[in-house]
């Protein structure tokens, strides 16, 4: 049992280590969700003062809104920002509990400190998403093959373990000998 738990934890750590580079869409989504915490929101975590300024441009009263005042926060696929070499533009759509809809785009660029994206600016109005506002990232084809292989491996491991335990339980002497 302890070995199995250790194995699963190791597998999770390997998976975490295999994590792809950061997605700009995910960062913008978290930045927008932080505006849904009211005064407790921390948009500065996503790009310092520039991210706070961008938040003020999108929702000037985000600090005084009640937590949960934003009913929907959606982002579309990132695309290279016009005229910029590395910056990405991420479209977003916000719907408040009052029914107000705000669309816009956030500009993100690689953080100066390295390791991911930072929100550099944002503007509102007239933006449409090519993904129709459903989440744009997802599993590659190989991931589905891996899932099928994983079930075969898991079933085999489980069958072998239970078979061995059943055999040793039926012949306690052989278990003691081994």
């Amino acid at each position: 049992m302890r070995r199995a738990t250790t194995g699963v934890i190791l597998l999770l750590l390997v998976l975490a280590g295999c994590a792809s580079s950061q997605r700009p869409e995910g960062l913008v989504e978290r930045w927008l969700l932080s505006l849904n915490q009211g005064a407790a929101g921390t948009p500065d975590r996503y790009g310092g003062q520039a991210a706070v300024d961008a938040a003020n441009a999108v929702l000037p009263d985000w600090r005084t809104r009640d937590p949960g005042a934003l009913d929907r926060v959606q982002v579309g696929s990132a695309a290279p920002d016009r005229g910029a070499a590395v910056a990405q533009s991420v479209p977003f759509r916000i719907e408040t509990m009052d029914g107000e809809v705000i669309t816009g785009a956030a500009i993100v660029h690689p953080c100066p400190s390295g390791g991911g994206w930072c929100v550099e600016g944002a503007g509102t109005g007239g933006v449409e998403s090519t993904s129709d506002w459903t989440w744009p990232a997802g599993a590659h084809g190989w991931a589905w093959v891996c899932a099928v292989l994983a079930t075969v491996v898991l079933a085999l491991i489980a069958v072998v373990i239970v078979s061995v335990v059943r055999k040793t339980a039926a012949n306690p002497g052989s278990a003691a000998a081994t």
Binding site: L12, L15, A16, C18, A19, S20, S21, Q22, R23, E25, G26, L27, E29, R30, G116, W135, A137, G138, A139, A143, W144, C146, A147, V148, A150, T151, L154, A155, A158
Partner: peptide
């Protein structure tokens, strides 16, 4: 971990959940 929108290997909670379902229930 799999579906984390920023850094997960799959990047989608929906796909990660479907993958886990396929991997676990047949076992």
């Amino acid at each position: 971990i799999l579906g984390d929108h920023v850094s997960g290997p799959v990047g989608s909670i929906g796909d990660a959940m479907s993958l886990v379902t396929i991997a676990m229930l047949p076992a």
